[in-house]
Design a protein around this nucleic acid. Structure first.
Lengths: 217, 217, 217, 217
DNA sequence: CATGAATGAGAGTTCATTCAT
DNA sequence: AATGAATGAACTCTCATTCAT
């Protein structure tokens, strides 16, 4: 889940290369993708990547930085929204997370491939920082719910892990997803509205039943 | 082949290279690891990998085939165990899954890196097949619980996603995990007993509250 | 063309690029210098070099042609000067050579780098032609001195080699020169008047003692 | 002037590449020579250079280190030789220097191309250090001669410059050399015995007339 | 059985140059 | 007249793999 880095506008060609790179890296991984592959896919000269981004590595950083203000603004907004109850905030987060991640499956896949490795420390830590911040926001909400006695005394960090982890599991592999939900072959779950609603519904049910005291249900 | 290979015994040296490769691939990814890196780490000759495994790619397949029994036998056993209630089976699955995955963090990481890509189709599908089979087993248990009216009418596939996804999220990055649970720097959550129990407890709570009708709690 | 070009006036911008190029080529060599380096140093557009000079190679030729008048006129003038004795002409040549070369250390360095290679045949031969002509002039002077019996029967070509070679040796490397004359670090021998006089004095002494019969001293 | 780095024996193939590289670098300069050129000339695979030397730069360093113990041992030996007079030591140095340099014209050319640039600081300083040491030895000899009043009060550093500079001037360009001594085209001065003797004779005469007090001649 | 030497292919990157504006 | 964008060619270097021993 990301926010577009507001304001900054990239040239059409740069943006075009960036999008091609996101797709390619998602499919083959960063090391598995060659600049020549990328140039061919984006239909540009091999020298363009270095011309625009300086290096393959910097292209990668640009991708992450350009897209990865991971939910930050939205999360803060939800947390600060006084019209929402605690469980309402959880619901809002679920809706936003699911929508955001499903809308950028390739970028999401890149991010998680990176997280699974232990290379490129600087980038790695940048991504982690975003996760940690998001987790803290969620924890605040949950702890407030606990103090208000509308939530049970749950494990905030692992609750976050359950929430994101469920979505990630669905995003792992399109073909896995397709097989699991037993739909027809050319079905694309990530762009399917019904599937998105199904995931949201499931997550809300899980969270409601887990978080809420009996009386509140 | 993915489900069964525990019978085959590899020579010590092969096993040694295999273990070094698992670590290396987990850290740097398959394409990010060079055979020279691997040879250096395993302290063997660079020609050994091709000598023993034929190629780098085949080494990778060997890793998956050799280790990816992945719960299969245990799951069937749990499903067939008539002394366990449905929720008892879910608990058993959680305990086994968590223990299994936490005991092989590197191998687990390799598997998920591979799933996130869309390369090496044959291998990809092998891994998916295991996941699908496991999901089917879990679905059987859940659907039986639903028929028996001890479980609510939940979404079996996404319930599986929640279960595995929660663990995966914890496994994503050791440093992320360390930061989330706010432990000291040299703490290794994957080998820590208390942490394993914490994950198991959380998952059980989530599953209990989600699956069980009110009366059953 | 190597002997004469002082009449031609280059535009300010061309001259500016030329000067930057001389410095850069002296520091890094022709192949070691990139047009982007040059453009950055001269603070002009990368396309300017090709725009003004046609190519990097032609820029190099322009440098040589534009600066390599190299003593020609002065040498002829000295040779023709009837007011000077033979040894007086040698002295005049030494004074002019030393002053000329020390005033253009970068250009000088470029010229010798080029001479040391066996590439760019045309340019190479142009440079050689100048040297040969200069040597012939010197030989004329020396042979006249020998005929007049004021000079010993010396080797004219190698005498020229000694004269120019001594100066070159000093010009080889500024840091070498600084270390040899054991001066302080920020001392620039090439612009130092005392150093120039020291070189001139040494060369005159060497030439006097070598050329002159005992009686003439 | 160099001494073979005694003791260390390189493999035939390494030595073969090294020799090809010396020739090539001498002709085209370091940056002007490509690894493909070198591989073609040495008739080896392009990967061999990196296999044996690590990199093109390290190959260059190896060349210098392997050959460039610039006269050191011989100079010390000559300085310490009590059977030689001061002027006898100068003569011995001239003979050795000329022979040594003329025997390795390509390597010599590489060394001076490097000195003329201001790049590769470490290597540059290494070469300079050798020059400085040699100069110091020569200075010791000259100063001893001055103290003994067999030499005039000359400028030791510049005397060294004259000695080496004369040889260098001859080594600058084979074609220049050929034209200067007006020999036929296919004449190779560097391997010609008569030419070597001519250079030695000239240098001895120059040094004798410059260094020696009148009475000593 | 095991390995150091060797290699062709392809990697990322830089280059001098061109061209539309 | 002057330039930023773009490019094909060539660069150094690393790769997985092979092979003679």
């Amino acid at each position: 889940m990301l926010q577009e880095s507001s304001g900054q506008v990239l040239s059409d060609k740069k943006e075009h290369i960036l999008n091609a790179a996101i797709e390619l890296f998602a499919e083959k991984g960063f090391e598995g993708s060659s600049i020549r592959d990328l140039a061919a896919r984006a239909e540009v000269n091999v020298a363009m990547v270095n011309y625009y981004f300086g290096s393959k590595e910097k292209l990668f950083e640009t991708i992450v930085e350009h897209r990865a203000t991971f939910m930050r603004g939205k999360l803060d907004e939800i947390e600060a929204d006084t019209t929402l109850s605690e469980i309402g905030k959880i619901d809002a987060i679920i809706e936003n997370y699911v929508a955001k991640i499903l809308s950028q499956p390739s970028f999401h896949r890149i991010l998680y491939q990176e997280l699974l490795k232990e290379e490129r420390e600087a980038l790695h830590e940048n991504i982690i920082r975003i996760f940690v911040q998001n987790t803290h926001t969620l924890r605040n909400i949950i702890e407030k719910g606990i103090r208000k006695k509308v939530f049970r005394k749950v494990d905030p960090e692992l609750t976050m892990a359950t929430l994101i982890g469920t979505i990630n599991q669905v995003m792992l592999s399109k073909s896995l997803c397709v097989m699991l939900v037993e739909s027809k072959d050319n079905f694309d779950p990530y762009t399917d509205d019904a599937f998105q609603k199904r995931v949201i519904k499931h997550l809300k049910q899980v969270m409601h039943s887990y978080l809420l005291e009996q009386m509140n249900r």
